[in-house]
Design a binder for these strands. Structure first.
Length: 489
RNA sequence: GCGAUCGUAGCUCAGUUGGUUAGAGCACCGGGUUGUGAUCCCGGGGGUCACGGGUUCGAGUCCCGCCGAUCGCCCCA
């Protein structure tokens, strides 16, 4: 304490004390479970990569927020690297903390593409870094969960319909996985909705309403900014592109109506299909997707949002976002069919999404879905199985350490699954009431009161039932394992 | 990079128009009734009032700077 200035954690980072660490684990465990249940395999990569890996992709937004590994606490330094890179200057840092996973994923996939199954389904969850100004739902270090389906399972000579169906299936799989996570955490259709659009549809609607091929991407970017710019400024930019939201909306209204009809009746009338064809709209992929979402049982959580574009330039087809009232998007993703190739792999279609822990935590807290502290410690596996206390006699005091050691010991045959989480007090008091209180507070399932060199009394703290008879120390561990239901594991 | 609000104990906060050694509750630690958890009683550790200057006889309080936090803008992989 000689130093007057304590070293504070860097801006936008978090110190996680036990309950907070348990809260984070609750989320990462849910992510793992959801993605594993949906058939994704876990992968991971380095937390820093060659700066070049990110500059290659040319997305200005992300590059300007790259964290140089030596930026430290210096606010000017934090963004200096990203700004240099965005101006096209050389990177002063050869490595960058990863701001997203997709480039790593693409690199990893490309390196083994030939031997990987089609499709390959990978997920990852870990820390990512962006040199942003922290605010609600955004930090500089956060966890992100990514699920991606890379490649399509196709017959030897696929018809366009085969491709459309396989594509929609991949799209639906990632959305279903995302829904699976949300539902497992207790969120329902009353809490969130999945907004879906398709870049191909958007592009065809723009073409149909008079936007030239050259202006397409600018128009899509502008649509994404619709709610961010004031009307006047938006119109000023839209005019030269020949972009009219009203005309786009009129064009997509047909799709809207047809998808709604599908939602109600599970079929599309001939008329609707014909109208779409005549309108020159590329809406077919959405109908395949709707069908797949319906089969996956998640269609009622989804809605068509014709003006959803998402900021990223690299999306080529379906795009989606998980929307919760009053918060930023909980998750977002889409199809990026050109990206793997851009990173040096074979031409491979892919679709995926990312979900951050920061907004998700806020949503769970808002909705009262974050478990209590005690429950979190239990979920995180940090509640003791047994709390061992001495009855205060010298004989019991002497026996206690070996009782503890025995409970904690795990066997090779059981791969340690028979090891128990056993604790004792660090206090000096011999007051049994106080020690029981401490055991209770620790969340322990059982308490074992050492009575002598050979016997203990067992008490279940959850039911508050105490054994009438004593248990020999020699059979204590087996007895506890049995009562925990962990025999024969 | 820009704007707004805010920094008193681990947490939630009191602290009068500037006025003795800066307080409470909770939490934490110890003790009491000599083996069963609430409640209770007693005691304890903790804060150079974020940090640095300035004004003043005197600053937690007023002024400036700085750091940090929160919420927005920009941006969103």
């Amino acid at each position: 304490m000689a130093d007057h200035k304590p070293i504070q954690p860097p801006t936008g980072t978090r110190d996680l004390y036990p309950v907070e660490a348990a809260r984070r684990r609750f989320i990462t465990e849910a992510w793992r479970r959801a993605s594993i249940n949906h058939g994704f395999e876990e992968v991971d990569g380095p937390t820093f990569e060659s700066t070049e890996l990110y500059t290659k992709k040319s997305g200005d937004g992300i590059v300007s927020e790259i964290f140089g590994v030596f930026s430290g606490k210096d606010e000017q330094g934090v963004k200096a690297l990203g700004e240099k890179l965005a101006r096209g200057e050389d990177a002063p840092a050869p490595y960058a903390l990863r701001p997203e996973f997709t480039p790593t994923l693409a690199r990893m996939y490309a390196a083994r593409a030939a031997s990987l199954p089609k499709p390959t389904k990978w997920f990852t969850a870990g820390p990512f870094f962006r040199a942003e100004r922290p605010q609600r739902g955004r930090l500089r270090e956060f966890l992100q969960w990514n699920c991606d389906v890379i490649g399509l399972a196709l017959p030897e000579k696929p018809t366009p319909e085969d491709i459309a169906r396989a594509t929609a299936q991949g799209d639906a799989e990632v959305i279903a996985c995302c829904v699976g996570l949300l539902e497992q955490l207790g969120l329902t259709g009353a809490d969130y909705s999945i907004a879906i659009n398709d870049r191909r549809l958007l592009a065809s609607a723009l073409r149909a309403t008079g936007v030239s091929e050259a202006d397409l991407s600018a128009a899509i970017a502008l649509i994404d900014q619709e709610t961010k710019l004031d009307l006047h400024e938006w119109n000023r930019r839209a005019q030269p592109l020949n972009l009219s939201l009203i005309r786009v909306a009129q064009a997509t209204d047909l799709v809207q109506a047809a998808l709604q009809e599908f939602g109600r009746s599970r079929r599309v009338s001939e008329d609707a299909a014909a109208i779409l064809q005549r309108g020159g709209l590329d809406a077919g992929s959405l109908f395949y997707l709707w069908k797949q979402l319906d089969s996956a049982g998640v269609l009622d959580r989804c809605h068509f949002k014709p003006d959803l574009a998402r900021g990223l330039a690299y999306y080529t087809g379906m795009v989606f976002e998980v929307i919760v009232d009053g918060e930023r998007a909980v998750a977002g993703g889409g199809r990026y069919d050109n990206l793997i190739e851009l990173f040096g792999g074979p031409s491979t279609p892919a679709v995926g999404f990312g979900m951050g822990d920061v907004v998700l935590s806020l949503v769970l807290q808002d909705k009262g879905l974050m478990p209590s502290d005690a429950e979190l410690m239990q979920i995180a596996g940090q509640s003791p199985d047994v709390f061992v206390i001495s009855n205060g006699t010298p004989e019991a005091d002497a026996a206690l350490p070996s009782v503890l050691a025995d409970l904690r010991r795990g066997s090779r045959e059981q791969r340690g699954r028979d090891a128990l989480h056993a604790r004792r007090t660090s206090k000096t008091t011999k007051n049994v009431g106080k020690l029981l209180q401490e055991a209770e507070k620790s969340g322990a399932h059982f308490v074992a009161i050492v009575e002598s060199a050979g016997e203990v009394t067992l008490k279940n703290l959850r039911t508050r039932e105490q054994d009438q008879s004593k248990t020999p120390i020699a059979s204590l561990k087996a007895e506890v394992l049995k009562r925990l239901g962990r025999t024969g594991a």
